[in-house]
Design a protein around this nucleic acid. Structure first.
Lengths: 200, 200, 200, 200
DNA sequence: TATGAATGAGCCTTCATTCAT
DNA sequence: CATGAATGAAGGCTCATTCAT
């Protein structure tokens, strides 16, 4: 992970101001995108002066990394807590929860898909590493389920990818399902069913 | 569809130079994104002088729309030719073809997911309308398959969306499956199987 | 007078197209000013293609000269017909007419005051010469009136200037007298009275 | 009055740099006109970098307003000090002074007549309001003179307008009286006489 | 003569970044 | 640590003018 240069040493202040920055920047990037958000706007929204912001970052791009890093935590937070399941019913329950959680983080996920690639190679790699860990964990569960005879999955790696992707689909597909007559609940049920069919 | 202003009347010239523009701009937008591509670069790559470019468009954003519109055609071109299928085997064959075709348009699809939202309301609507037509067509086939007893699909609308999305997943997932040890063929087979399981 | 270069030789065509040009350009310059009127607008309004316009002028500035020259004719046309007067009553009558005429050419006069100075020295001189002739003519009448004992004017040159200027004042002052509660007729009467007081 | 946007908060700096801007811009606008003066020239002449200029204004047009506003102050400054007069002799003395003052501001007045109309509605209104106040003040004095029996003016409103305009005439007429053989003193005397004749 | 596409310098404005205070 | 004025390169876009057809 590329270390963001900072000249600030007072630890509490650092944390506070970085939080202010991330909150402001997340909103702005979600709303207008990285390239269309100016440092002046960030300064206004965060309450830090432009000059001071540059005490916490080396260049504007660092903000993009900061915000991604922070969002990843939120997006994957659910999985860090709830990934344990012992049978298919528990998996189904887990998936529903994951979908609901995804819908809550819809904007952030969209932001990730839209803006991450603007980061340079190095920063990008480090972010993708996190996702890979998440997928591998899921694959581990699927392998185990296969072994236990609970599931009968042909290719657990592809399936793990498929599940993770299906989940984010809810967020990404937003613009196309807009005006969809189905209720959110029914939509989630359908998607969960689709996934479940592939595990047995 | 938003009419793109042009000062040129010669239809042949419009066609030729807009093609030059689209070719240049597609590469540049894929590479650097819309906001980071300058009119000067576009001028160089397209071989048209800046002033002349503005004889064919009203504003830079028109290029974004043009390139999307053009890509849509490419991406959906496959479906316009091959959507007819009469049994599940033919559907499986069609899906394989669609996946292969998608991989060819990988870059363009990525571009669409990353940059489309930058478009203004009007242009956006017009593009989404096209996609909706495509999905509705697929839904029609699924409904018919249900009626004929070939398939047994619970919610054809969600399934149609699901299929379309699965297809583009191949393109979007690029960065995550990078380094994946599976061969492309095997990957496609797995994804097709996943889809097929949901139709019976 | 600086000759405007022209490559066109067919005399009738020349006259027609120059008229089209002048009419279009007068309206546009009055409305938006010289610098804010583009050749494209002139082309559209006149019905001549841009390229063809350049068969009649050497550069855009020539249009400014053309339009001034043409307007001068209109503005001073009244004086060419009506300057003869034999007593103060006839002068008073003449002045009223001049004021009314001025109001009709209000826009053109404004244009002259606002845009003439954009012309280079040479063109400017030639235009001012015309006005000087007009003033001298008026001065001649005043001198004669003095000699005849009809009037008793101290400085006929300044007075002639004063009269000419008073007349154009009606046009120039437009923006300040806007919302003036007086009727136009009464305003003219007052101004004529002011002038007349200075002749006896 | 349209508030001119500024990003700078330090009042002293605002005053200093706006003054630099006005000084530079007045010269340039008088010389070449608003539309023909580029921001680059303004930057050079004022000593402020282009970017910094935009810390003190919102858009180029603001400079036109600023310079007008500033000139108004100069042009009317004389009246703010000297408008008191108790008899016709004092009025005559005041008028002479006003004429001399006007000649000093010749260039500025020309600028006003030539460029004011380029301003947008809002800015224009605010400038005309200032002039109206000035004319009304003069009208007040004339009304009072009428009441006191010092003067005998038929229409004080038109007369007030007339006087104000006669004064600026000296500036506007510059190009026409150029080469005039009269001395400036004698010219002023004549114009004052013309005005005085209309007050009794 | 007439056409209108092509040229490219130049316009106004914004922006990330620096640095004296 | 914090401030915010200053920098100037770079951005999108317009325009008078030319010239091959």
């Amino acid at each position: 992970m590329p270390e963001i240069k900072t000249r600030v040493t007072n630890q509490k202040l650092i944390r506070e101001n970085r939080r202010k920055l991330i909150n402001a920047v997340t909103k702005l990037f979600v709303e207008k995108g990285y390239d269309r958000t100016s440092m002046r706007e960030i300064s206004q929204k965060s309450g830090l002066t432009i000059g001071n912001i540059y005490n916490y970052i080396g260049k504007k791009e660092d903000l993009l990394f900061m915000v991604h890093d922070d969002m990843m935590e939120g997006v994957y937070e659910f999985d860090n807590i709830h990934t344990e399941w012992r049978n298919l019913n528990e998996l189904r329950y887990y998936l529903k929860g994951a979908f609901v959680h995804t819908l809550e983080y819809k904007k952030e996920i969209l932001l990730m898909y839209r803006q991450t690639w603007l980061l340079g190679e190095e920063a990008l790699e480090s972010l993708l590493a996190k996702e890979k860990v998440h997928i591998l964990k899921l694959k581990g569960f699927l392998d185990e389920a296969n072994k236990k005879g609970i599931a009968k999955i042909q290719d657990t790696e592809i399936t793990a990818n498929f599940i993770v992707y299906m989940i984010s689909m809810l967020a990404l597909r937003g613009w196309s399902l807009k005006g969809h007559k189905k209720s959110q609940g029914k939509l989630i049920d359908s998607l969960v069913s689709i996934i479940m069919k592939n595990l047995v």
